[in-house]
């Protein structure tokens, strides 16, 4: 095999024998990652669908429940995730340009931002817990409909809002925790100098995952926090 002219011509140690060249190998893995993300879209899609139907049915109660969420913390967390998406693309770019030190810095920043997001989320959930807004036997939501202050909120409908809130932000946070794990692994390998301009597929594909999780939050923020806020 070693005498074959093709094998001698381009021998990159990262190239697996069943691919013609590095470009084909890279595109095949990126396509596989996108197929996985397509299944993730449908996974979150089910929850979004349930959310949309209940929101349509119980809009006034959803508005009241949504108004009890902290819009500042929600907006700050959106900004934190957007910044982390920037550090991810910059880390991938550093790998493409073969800059190991920049890769390490940007990956470390991504981890810090990811953990900051989870920290803010923990603060929000803690206050919801104290206010008895966690669905269950002790659930209690006092409040009135935003556009009709004399009308009390239906407890059951508010509970459905918070069930969806915790299911959606919970699944999103689980994805963030997994992302933090993946990026810790990437940071270790970037530190060791594993990723080069010829081979940085794990970085590129994990980046796609991170951006996907960012996009989910881009939709969660207006849908959960910004219902019926108008004065």
């Amino acid at each position: 095999m070693a005498d074959s002219p093709i094998a001698v011509e381009h021998h990159n140690p990262a190239l697996k024998h069943h691919f013609a060249d590095m470009e084909q190998q890279r595109e095949a893995s990126s396509l596989g990652m996108w197929l996985f993300l397509a299944t993730e879209i449908m996974f979150f899609g089910g929850m979004f669908c349930a959310y949309l139907i209940y929101r349509l049915w119980y809009f006034p109660d959803f508005g009241a429940a949504s108004n009890s969420l902290d819009i500042t913390l929600g907006a700050v967390n959106t900004a934190v995730l957007i910044c982390s998406s920037l550090t991810v693309v910059m880390a991938v770019r550093a790998a493409q340009l073969g800059k190991r030190q920049q890769q390490v810095i940007y990956l470390a920043l991504t981890l810090v931002l990811g953990l900051a997001f989870l920290g803010v989320k923990a603060v929000e959930w803690t206050s919801k817990f104290k206010e008895h807004h966690i669905p269950g036997p002790t659930f209690n939501f006092e409040g009135s409909i935003p556009s009709h202050p004399d009308q009390p909120v239906d407890q059951h409908h508010a509970q459905i809002f918070f069930s969806l809130y915790f299911a959606m932000t919970g699944m999103h946070a689980l994805h963030m925790v997994i992302g933090v794990g993946i990026f810790s692994y990437l940071l270790y390998h970037a530190w060791k100098g594993t990723y080069t301009p010829e081979y940085y597929t794990p970085l590129e594909n994990s980046g796609l995952y991170w951006h996907f999780v960012d996009i989910v939050w881009i939709y969660l923020f207006p849908l959960l926090y910004l219902i019926d806020r108008k004065k």
Partner: peptide
Amino acid sequence: TSEKMVKVVVVSAVFFLLLLL
């Protein structure tokens, strides 16, 4: 990307999501 299949996957994923919703 020059890989057209990636674009096909993205568009079809969004299409099926919109179908569901």
